[in-house]
Design a protein around this nucleic acid. Structure first.
Lengths: 169, 169
DNA sequence: AAAATATCATAAGGGCCCCTGATTAATATG
DNA sequence: CATATTAATCAGGGGCCCTTATGATATTTT
C-alpha cells in the first residue's frame, strides 16, 4: 500500500469513527437536544425553513418522498406542535404546512448547538476543520449533483441557507 | 456573539452538515457497500472483531444490550452468513457466535473503504483532518468515559483496535 | 352535469433498532 | 432428586423511516 493511500484510509477511518462515536455521544453524554436530520420529520422541517407554508404536495415533490410519507411526518410534527395545518382558501383540498414558533425554535437551537467536544480545538483548529469540511462537502455536493441534480441541488440550497444564514448577514 | 463562538458554531455546523450529507451521499452516489455502525448488527460484528467466539450472553453484557436484542441481531447476521452459531461442548445451553470469512471480509472492507470525496483533499490536508478528528474523538471518549466508564472504554477499545489495526503492525 | 384529475388521509406492510415478559432447555445447587 | 439459576428463544410492543394500495373529498375538464 502506498503512503498516500494510507493517509486517505486513516482520514476515512477517523471520519467513520467520528460519525459512529457521535451517536454514542448523543445517547450517553448529552441530554436530549434538538437534532436535525435529513430524514423523515427533520427533512420536512428543513424544507419549511427554506420556504414556509408549503402544501404537502409541494413538500413531497421537493423532497423526493411519497405524499403518504409526507402526510405521516407532517402529522407527527403537528402532534409535536412544531407545525400547524391550515386548509388553503383557494383550494380546500390542500393543507398548508406552517412552522410554529416552537418549530422555528427547534431548528435554530439545533443549528446553534455547539457540542462540548469542539472546545478541544483551538480557534485556529476550528477554522482549519471548517475549511477542510467545506472542501469535503463541496466534493460531496458535486458528486450528488452529478448523480441526481434535482435532489442534490435542493439539499445544497437547504443546507447552505440553513447553516450559513447567520454568517451572511 | 464573540468571534470564537462564531468559529465554533461554523465548525459545528460543518460537522453536522457533513454527517447529514454523508447519508444522502451513501443513498444516492455510492453502490451499496458494507457499512459498519455501532448499532444493532454492526455492534455485534465490532464486538466479535474484538474477540471472536463469544456467547450471546457475553455479547449482551459487553455491549450493554438485552439478551433478546442480541439474539435477534445474531440471528439476522447468521441469515446473512456473516456469523455462525455453534453450541458449546462444555455448556450446551450457550451458542457461541463466530465470524465467518464473509463476516471478517465485511468488516475489513468497510474499514478500508475510502470515500471518493476524500480525494478532494491533498495528502497534507488528509493528515490535518485526521489529526483534528483525533483530537475531537479523544475529547468524546473522555466525555463518554466520564459518563459511563464501562461502555465508553469498551467502545474505545473496539474502535481503536478496529481502525488503527493496520497502522500498528 | 359527468368524468377525469389532484390532494390528502388511512391502512397495511416492510425494514431497522430496541425493549419487557414469558417459555424452553440445560446446568448448578441444596 | 427437586429447586433454583442461567442461556437462549418466542411473542409482543414501541419508535423511526418509507412504501404501495385504497378511498374520500375537492377541483378541473369536457
Amino acid at each position: 500500500m502506498v503512503a498516500n493511500e494510507a493517509k486517505a484510509e486513516l482520514a476515512a477511518g477517523k471520519l467513520a469513527e467520528y460519525e459512529q462515536l457521535s451517536k454514542i455521544y448523543d445517547d450517553i453524554v448529552k441530554q436530549t437536544r434538538p437534532h436535525l436530520t435529513v430524514e423523515g420529520q427533520g427533512k420536512i422541517l428543513l424544507a419549511l425553513t427554506d420556504e414556509d407554508h408549503q402544501s404537502q404536495r409541494q413538500l413531497a415533490t421537493h423532497l423526493g418522498m411519497s405524499p403518504q410519507s409526507t402526510s405521516e411526518f407532517v402529522a407527527k410534527l403537528a402532534k409535536r406542535n412544531l407545525v400547524t395545518l391550515s386548509k388553503s382558501t383557494k383550494d380546500r383540498r390542500v393543507n398548508l404546512v406552517s412552522l410554529t414558533d416552537a418549530g422555528r425554535q427547534e431548528i435554530t437551537s439545533a443549528a446553534q448547538e455547539v457540542p462540548p467536544f469542539l472546545q478541544a480545538l483551538s480557534e485556529a483548529e476550528q477554522d482549519q476543520l471548517a475549511a477542510l469540511l467545506t472542501k469535503i462537502t463541496n466534493a460531496m455536493y458535486a458528486d450528488i449533483d452529478a448523480a441526481n441534480p434535482t435532489l442534490g441541488v435542493k439539499f445544497h440550497k437547504l443546507f447552505a441557507a440553513h447553516y450559513l444564514k447567520r454568517f451572511k448577514k
